[in-house]
């Protein structure tokens, strides 16, 4: 048996949020299992999936959390947002309401998620010719909210990997720069466990 430690370098908790039916579950299934199903199956509870990817030469284990966008399934609680390092806000380019609701989701994220969580805006179903939200509108909203932006299609496998890799890279960059500043703060650069975990919890609560 291999006793020489883990087969990854770090873990990232990533959430998918947005209105029901925008394609969150499809994006996730496309990314993790490279499959697509055209039928709509309501997500019940929170689905948890894992995928390990290479980011900047490091093995990063992505913990991906998918939930129903509807209140009836009792999933949208603060517990869901706790500890999330990345949050993907998804709308459907063929449905304007899902796009206007992004602001509401953004507010919810600000209320419940860690301040340092990295966000990403995704306009999904770009393959559809019944599009009602233009790329430019999506881009403008992203700019207004200060988020990176991607348009994707889970159906045609357009930009799906990009969503997750872009986000993971942004998070990894944050971690690395945090580490740098942490290292600067300690005298010898040899980070002591306790101080680093307490600095982490501080970061969590402020």
């Amino acid at each position: 048996m291999s006793g020489n430690g883990k087969n990854y370098d770090s873990i990232m908790k990533i959430l998918l949020i947005g209105d029901s039916g925008v394609g969150k579950s499809c994006l996730l299934v496309r990314f993790v299992e490279d499959k697509f199903s055209p039928s709509f199956i309501t997500t019940i509870g929170i689905d948890f999936k894992i995928k390990t990817v290479d980011i900047n030469g490091k093995k990063v284990k992505l913990q991906l959390w998918d939930t129903a966008g509807q209140e009836r399934f009792r999933t949208i609680t603060t517990a869901y947002y706790r500890g999330a390092m990345g949050i993907i806000l998804v709308y459907d380019v063929t449905d304007e309401r899902t796009f206007t609701n992004i602001k509401q989701w953004f507010k919810t994220v600000n209320d419940h998620a860690n301040d340092d969580a990295q966000l990403l805006l995704v306009g999904n179903k770009s393959d559809m010719d019944t599009r009602l939200v233009t790329y430019e509108q999506g881009e403008a909203l992203a700019k207004e909210l200060g988020l990176p932006f991607v348009e994707s299609s889970a159906k045609d496998d357009q930009n799906v990997n990009e969503i997750f890799f872009t986000l993971a890279r942004l998070i990894q960059d944050k971690i690395d720069s945090n580490k740098l500043s942490d290292a600067k703060n300690t005298n010898d650069g040899n980070v002591n466990i306790k101080s680093s975990s307490s600095s982490m919890s501080k970061a969590n609560c402020c």
Partner: peptide, 23 residues
């Protein structure tokens, strides 16, 4: 619930990633 091989010694960077779940 969310992590594996937790009986193996880690270096500090990894430990940081564990902090959040309190369930």
């Amino acid at each position: 619930l969310f992590d594996t091989d937790v009986n193996l010694p880690q270096n500090d960077a990894e430990l940081m990633n564990f902090a959040s779940d309190t369930s």
